[in-house]
């Protein structure tokens, strides 16, 4: 509840556009609206990205990419399908997963493992992603649920792929993922 109030308050202080106005102005290519969008949503979207991309610098690169995508794809946003934030959240999640799955990233991760000891000594720029945002919430779930949300939400595997990976029936994956999400919802709402 405390979070909810903080959010309300912070929005009141800067509120300028309603979501509908904002979307309309963005579709008209308005710079002020875009600047407003960035100022108001970049922090929240960066936390979403950060849940998947641990390196601070890389996460900022993904954020930049996400805002370019939002700008270029705003025409395709349909407010009858959901809130603007949900739409942007899904763009952020997909861009982050693409980054983490890219070859360049995989290689850099391997190199990092080799120099991990050195990195730790030098003070790495990675934030502990288990301690922020949705990932922190997911961390509180039961192990069998946690794995499913991890694979499905943070790594972008389809339920079919997960069933194959874990060697459990698709029906079980579905049920468990649903149960995990119900729990997730309860935790988020707290």
């Amino acid at each position: 509840m405390r979070h909810h109030l903080t959010y309300q308050y912070s929005l009141e202080a800067v509120k300028k556009y309603s979501e509908a106005e904002l979307v309309l102005l963005l579709k008209q290519r308005d710079q002020t609206a875009y600047s407003y969008l960035y100022d108001n949503y970049s922090g929240a979207l960066l936390s979403v990205i950060h849940n998947i991309v641990a390196e601070v610098e890389l996460a900022n690169d993904v954020l930049q990419e996400v805002f370019i995508k939002i700008w270029r794809q705003i025409e395709s946003y349909d407010d009858t399908k959901g809130r603007l934030f949900t739409w942007m959240l899904n763009i952020s999640r997909n861009a982050s997963i693409d980054t983490v799955r890219s070859k360049g990233y995989q290689n850099s991760q391997q190199n990092q493992e080799l120099t991990e000891v050195k990195q730790e000594a030098a003070g790495s720029t990675q934030l502990p992603i288990d301690q922020i945002g949705l990932r922190k919430v997911v961390h509180q779930l039961k192990e069998e649920y946690r794995v499913l949300v991890e694979l499905a939400y943070f790594q972008g595997y389809t339920q079919d792929e997960i069933a194959n990976m874990l060697g459990i029936p698709l029906g079980t994956v579905k049920t468990r993922l649903r149960n995990a999400l119900i729990q997730l919802r309860t935790v988020i709402k707290e």
């Binding site: 979070h3 909810h4 903080t6 959010y7 912070s10 970049s42 922090g43 929240a44 979207l45 960066l46 936390s47 979403v48 950060h50 601070v56 610098e57 900022n60 954020l63 959901g82 809130r83 934030f85 949900t86 959240l89 934030l127 922020i132 945002g133 949705l134 922190k136 919430v137 919802r185 988020i188 709402k189």
Partner: peptide, 17 residues
């Protein structure tokens, strides 16, 4: 659910570079 997701994300903002 969308509203609570948004609220949760805004409670955990990270300042970009």
């Amino acid at each position: 659910f969308e509203a609570s997701l948004e609220t949760a994300a805004f409670a955990n903002t990270i300042t970009p570079a």
